[in-house]
Design a protein around this nucleic acid. Structure first.
Length: 317
DNA sequence: ATGGACACCTGTGGGC
DNA sequence: TGCCCACAGGTGTCCA
């Protein structure tokens, strides 16, 4: 479910509450949500409790919280709690005692920087998402691992230790189109080399990250491209146009708090985003194309759906 | 390299 | 009301 705009909405919501918060307790209601954690439930709890959250960082659809271990246990470890929302994950901020969240899998209790007691709840219907402790390793390009909140420079004027690091489990994810170090030439070169359909390439998190089924369909609709058009067949102008649309759509969706159309995407306060009203293709099967009036079609594609205008988005060549 | 199938899961809505 | 099927914002792996 959540793609870059939804994950960024969550990140931006978590950051003010969790930065410099100290974890006091962890409750694991369903161990399957920790399946990507090497070491089991007790190990996860032992590492988390007492640690301080230094920031909330995002690349593509991955989020991580660099952790400062309590003194005496710090050693040389550079670690973070890595979270992924999968298809149905939510990260909610609650005050203790709030009881309305169904399908809660993990609760992290913490004392915020201002002294308030807060709860971070990981809610996930399908359990494709996960939380895990992971090692932070240097980024391949030596640049910041992801987007955070301008906390890169510490109070001493130096870069914080976690800035140019990335969780080992997310190191294969390339930069997303909203990353200030996004390498457009790298992506355009990949397009030229790939004969796969352009939608498949847009969804490949090792080509560019953050795009999922909604925003792929939306970007292709705006660019008048068919999902199976080979990436290598795009002209340079078409490829650049497509990336411009991708950026524009992602930025607009972030500004509107993401896309919500059921109970499966909510921000940290349990509220829906507003981008759904801007959708032109995704989920619009059978409604008139807003450009030409032809009915939007849904094709089964890669075990999911592809929504497009059969007239505006014809396969060419 | 590339495409396809499938595994991991639960919940909802439509048709009969 | 119940049952069955299709479908859902993702990722990783295995196989032709």
């Amino acid at each position: 479910m959540p793609e870059l705009p939804e994950v960024e909405t969550v990140r931006a919501g978590l950051a003010p509450a969790l930065t410099n918060a100290v974890i006091t307790a962890v409750e694991v209601l369903d161990a399957r949500s920790l399946k990507r954690h090497q070491g089991g439930v007790e190990d996860f709890k032992a590492t988390m409790v007492g640690s301080k959250i230094l920031a909330v960082v995002r690349r593509g659809k991955f989020l991580w919280l660099p952790l400062e271990l309590p003194s005496g246990r710090s050693g040389f470890h550079q670690i973070a709690m890595v979270g992924h929302l999968g298809m149905s994950g939510q990260m909610l901020l609650r005050t203790p005692g709030f009881t309305d969240d169904k399908l809660t899998r993990v609760i992290v209790k913490a004392t915020a920087e201002d002294g308030e007691e807060i709860e971070f709840r990981f809610v996930d219907q399908r359990i494709f998402g996960s939380l895990a402790i992971d090692e932070l390793i240097p980024t391949a390009d030596g640049l910041p691992g992801g987007f955070s909140d301008g906390l890169e420079i510490g109070i001493d004027g130096k870069l914080n230790w976690w800035v140019n690091l990335i969780p080992a489990s997310a190191a294969h994810i390339t930069r997303d189109p909203l990353d200030q170090h996004f390498d457009q030439k790298f992506v355009l070169d990949k397009f030229k080399k790939k004969n796969s359909g352009i939608k498949r390439v847009l969804l490949d998190q090792q080509t560019l990250s953050g795009i999922g089924n909604i925003y792929a369909d939306e970007a292709l609709w705006r660019s008048k491209l068919h999902y199976d058009q080979p990436a290598s067949s795009l002209s340079s102008a078409q490829a650049r146009d497509l990336l411009a649309h991708v950026r524009e759509i992602l930025a607009k969706a972030v500004a509107e708090g993401g896309t919500s159309f059921d109970e499966q995407y909510k921000n940290v306060n349990g509220e829906s985003g507003y981008f759904a009203v801007s959708l032109n293709a995704y989920g619009m099967t059978g409604t008139p194309c807003k450009r030409c009036g032809t009915l939007i079609k849904r094709d089964s594609w890669m075990n999911r759906g592809s929504h497009f205008c059969p007239k505006c988005q014809k396969l060419k060549g």
